[in-house]
Design a protein around this nucleic acid. Sequence first.
RNA 1: GCGCUCGUAGCUCAGUUGGAUAGAGUGUUGGCCUCCGAAGCCAAAGGUCGUGGGUUCGACUCCCGCCGAGCGCGCCA
Length: 583
Amino acid sequence: MKQIINDLLAQALRELEQSSQIPPRLGVDIQVTPSKDPGQGDFASNVALVLAKPAGMPPRELAAAIVGRLAACDSIDRVEIAGPGFINFFVASALSQSVINRILEQGDRFGGSAQGAGVKVQVEFVSANPTGPLHVGHGRGAAYGATLANLLAFVGYEVQKEYYVNDAGRQMHILGTSTWLRYLELCGETIDFPSNGYQGDYVWDIAATLHREQGERFRKPAAQAFADVCADFPQGDKERHVDDLIANAHGLLGEDEYRVVFDLALDTLVDVIRNDLHAFGVDFDCWFSERSLGDEGLIEQAITRLQDNGYVYEEGGALWFRSTDFGDEKDRVVRRDNGQTTYFASDIAYHMNKFERGFDKVINIWGADHHGYIPRVKASLSALGYVADNLEVQLVQFANLFENGEKIAMSTRSGEFVTLRQLREDVGLDAARFFYVMRKAEQHMDFDLDLAREQSSDNPVYYLQYAHARICSVRRQCAEKGIEVSTQTANLLRLDNEHEQALIKQLSLFPERVESAANRREPHLVVNYLRELANHFHSWYNAHQFIVGDTELRDARIALAAAVAQVLRNGLNLMGVSAPEKM
RNA sequence: GCGCUCGUAGCUCAGUUGGAUAGAGUGUUGGCCUCCGAAGCCAAAGGUCGUGGGUUCGACUCCCGCCGAGCGCGCCA
């Protein structure tokens, strides 16, 4: 429809140019937008305002000239000039009502498109360190990423969802050593647990599994484990304290034995995370191991490639990547003077690998605290010869958690946090998923746990679900009363009151709103849309009876309601929220 | 100090990329079930869009300064 109006306007402008009423080649994008006020028609264009100055005519006069040249069209009932010079278009009702049949025919495909056909996109999200269960802070990225992936798939992209498992770093060694120390305690050793170790109960669970399955195979005297270890906080340095403990664990157990403990902790937590996410309605296509990058020589390969391209130099015994050549604020170390490659080097290799796997577009969803990291990763891609813009980083702001009116800090280390699982069990999957994607991802968000728990019935998700349930209820009523409903005999032209007009228009907007949400990576636009749709529906429901004696009208209204239900389902489905038939 | 993300109704947030009288939810105050589900509807009240300039037919939106909030600036991951 937009396109039709656009063409009409373009044609009128060409005619004006030819008759020299306006100067040639003003070359402006014609904008056609849906109107918000029904009094302003269905669509409006501001061409006359934009062209007024270059054409040297007052906007309203120009608008009149354009309207005078508009070709007749069955789709348009009438055209009006309003305000400072807007041109408002009123769409013929027969045409707008045809959307109902289109929705009922297309079913769960309505709103989708083939915009992204043939384009491979990877969405990487969550990727939390497997050092503990996911907490509510991870929920936002999980819900956002999953919804974005659904949206992209819906508009035709070939989407792969990936979780990057940080299984190689120091944090993991702290976890492995924490597990081993708890295990020693279970063996009967007396231990002063490091303040910087992982103190959550889940570490006890893993240690217990180890003890149950392996007996005392890994037992060493506590005195040896703590031999020559730097003092812990507050007397000493808590960071060195754990590092020394890690070194002792390695030395006492030997590499192979240490690995058994380490891998048990790792595998257990990855399983926990995978299960938590699955229960949250989020499933990944690929779990990519950081450790595999080194094992398969990809890190060395990436560094060599940077070297070959001339972006690497040595200084102070370390190897540096000249990221400042690509706008980064300083150069970055890729190999330390002790010979170890940095986390950044792994990330370079990881991103290189993503593009080697053939993705046209790579979307990373990161917590806002990682924003400073973007320039160097993009720099590395440019240096490797890729198009840096094909990597897109979407930042998700933290949710501030409030409980009892106070902001609560969460720490995986101390074990003090609310898990994603607890949240879901408290408020339910639908409310939790909806809550997270309700707001724009870059917006700082306050998450009131008490409100979420105790007044979860206030969650706006129920407003949408209720609309759906009401429609299903009407259909049940018809069945109980033995009323046959047929969309074939419906006369959609009877849907002529203002509520119905508004509702039909809202339905017709769904595909473009979905596309816009996908292209802008803003799932909350779908939420806003669905709320508007539900609002129009509830107003209509309160103002009119559906089950009336006039079969032509009854069938038309029920067809419209069925179309609303279909769009609600399609929208909720994108967010991983159910559309119940009863509540 | 530099950089990123922000600042809109009492509270939580939208605002279709520069358009018409800045909108929802929640809270407050009224009204609506003899009727398909009141988890709903209708109405009222509530605003210097942080602030001061600039750009233009037109600014919540774009540019600059200032104030305030969160985050980031390591041979950590």
